[in-house]
Write a protein that binds this DNA or RNA. Structure first.
Lengths: 243, 243
DNA sequence: ATTGCGTTTCTGGCATACCAAATGCCATAA
DNA sequence: TTATGGCATTTGGTATGCCAGAAACGCAAT
C-alpha cells in the first residue's frame, strides 16, 4: 500500500496518472470555528485591559451560527495550542503570556532556526538561498528599515519563515510557525523596536552570506545569535509591556 | 488578590491554619479520555499490521463508559497533537510516521536540546548538573549498557528529560516531551540499537563535563551532535522498520 | 463469473436538552 | 444599614438523537 492518496483504480484502468485530487472535503464547522477563533484571538489585543479576556461558548455559537458542539471542539483544539484555558464552571480564558514566557519561546525559536540554517547549508540550492535577499530589496540606505518599521516587520517575518522553509523540514516549519503565532500576539513588540531594526538587516544579510558559503557552523551561529538577540532585547526592554 | 489558593476566611475565624486544601478538581471525562487514548496509542504497536489502525468513536465511548461527546473532544485534541487524523465519514486513523518524519523530529529535538545545554551552562547549579551522572550509576565496565539495552534505554530517556529540565525553560521542556512521545512510538528504535548504545554513554558524560566546565559552545555542540548522531543512525539503519 | 444498481449499514458531524457547580442578586432579619 | 441565606442565573460538561455521505452488501441481469 504505497500511496493511500491514490484512488483505488481497477486493474483495467490505465495508469495514466491524471491529477485526480480528492474533491474538496468541505471543511467542517469545527475547523471553520477553529480558524475563526484563532484568527480572532490573534487579532485582538489581549493586553488592552487588565481583566482577562473571556469567551462564551453560547455567545460564540450564536455569533458563528452553529451549535455549541463544534465550538467546544474548536475550543479544545485551541486549548491544546495553548491559546485558551477553560476552567470548569468559570469560563474560557484567553491565555496571557508573561514576558519570560515570550522570551522563552523566542529562545526555542532561535534553537529551531539555527538548526534550519545548519540543514540549509547542506541541502538547499544556491539559487533559493540567494532569493532570500528579495525580502529586503525595498530597503536600502535611501530607505532605511527603521523609517518603515511596520513594513520591515512584515518583511522580517516573511524572511524568517522562508528561511525555515528552505530547511525542508516540516517539523521545524510547523514548530516555528506555532511559536511565531504566540510571539506575534505581542504586537507591542513592534513598538519601539526601532532601535533594534537598524541592526536587524545586516544580521540577516550575514546569515544569508554564511548560508551561501555553505559554512554550517557560522550559519548556525549567526542564525542563533540573531534571534537570541531579539530574546535579550525583549527581556531587557519589554518590561513595561507586561503587567 | 494575592493568593487565590487560600480560602476566603471571615475575619472572625481564627487563623488556625487548618490544612484546608482545595478539593480535587475532578478532571473531566474529556481529559480522562484524552489521557487514556493517548496512552493507548503510545502503547500500541502501530506498525504491527500493514493496515492503518482505526478508532471508532462509538466503540470508544462504550469502552470508556462515557458518551461520544467527551470522546470527540479528546479526539480533537489528539488530532492537534498529530497522533490521529480523522477523515469525515471514513474514520479516525492513528497516524503512522515515516522514517524521514522521525528523523526530522529527532533533528528538532537536537536543536532544542542543544539550546537547553547552552542555557544550562549559564544558569544551572553545579550540583544539579553533576546529579545527571546518577542516571548511569548502574552502568560501568563490569556492567555495560549494551548488555542491558532495555534498562539503559530508560536511563537514557530519563537523562535527556532531566537535562532539558535543567534549562528551566518550560517551552523547551514541553516541546521536547511532545517530540519524544512521537519518537518513542517507534519502539523498534530500541531494537538493534545495541551498537549505538556503546557510544552513547561516553557522549553523555562528555556533555555533562562540558556543562560543568560552563563551556557554552562545547556543551551546545556535544548535545547537538549526540542527538544528531541518533538521527543519522535512524536514517541509516531504520529502513526496514518502516514500510 | 462479472457487472449494475439499489439498499442497508456504518461513521463522523452537528444540534439539542439536561445537569451540576459557581456566582450574583435580593429579600429578609438583626 | 448590614450581614445572611437562598434562589435564579450563568457556564461548562455530558448524554442523545438525527443527519448525510460513503462504503459494504446483496440481488439480479448479462
Amino acid at each position: 500500500m504505497p500511496d493511500p492518496k491514490q484512488t483505488k483504480a481497477s486493474p483495467t484502468m490505465a495508469d495514466t496518472d491524471i491529477a485526480i485530487v480528492r474533491i474538496a472535503p468541505e471543511t467542517s464547522f469545527k475547523n471553520k470555528a477553529y480558524e475563526a477563533l484563532k484568527e480572532a484571538i490573534l487579532k485582538m489585543d489581549i493586553y488592552a485591559t487588565p481583566e482577562p479576556v473571556m469567551l462564551d461558548e453560547r455567545a460564540l455559537s450564536e455569533r458563528l451560527g452553529v451549535s455549541r458542539t463544534p465550538i467546544r471542539e474548536a475550543i479544545a483544539m485551541l486549548e491544546q495550542d495553548g491559546f485558551v484555558k477553560t476552567v470548569p464552571r468559570r469560563g474560557i480564558i484567553v491565555v496571557r503570556r508573561t514576558k519570560s514566557e515570550i522570551v522563552d519561546m523566542i529562545r526555542a525559536w532561535a534553537a529551531l532556526e539555527s538548526m534550519a540554517a545548519r540543514l540549509i547549508t547542506t541541502t538547499a540550492r544556491k539559487k533559493d538561498i540567494s532569493a532570500l535577499r528579495d525580502f529586503f530589496k525595498d530597503f536600502s540606505d535611501d530607505r532605511l528599515p527603521q523609517d518603515h518599521v511596520e513594513e520591515y516587520s512584515k518583511a522580517n517575518i516573511a524572511f524568517h519563515q522562508a528561511l525555515i522553509s528552505l530547511s525542508e523540514s516540516p517539523v521545524l516549519v510547523d514548530l516555528t510557525n506555532d511559536l511565531l503565532l504566540h510571539v506575534r500576539g505581542y504586537r507591542q513588540l513592534t513598538i519601539g523596536r526601532k532601535d533594534r531594526t537598524a541592526t536587524s538587516l545586516p544580521e540577516h544579510l550575514g546569515i544569508i552570506e554564511a548560508l551561501e558559503a555553505r559554512d554550517t557552523e557560522l550559519a548556525e551561529k549567526r542564525a542563533r545569535d540573531h534571534t537570541l538577540g531579539l530574546a535579550a532585547y525583549v527581556e531587557a526592554h519589554g518590561q513595561e509591556l507586561f503587567t
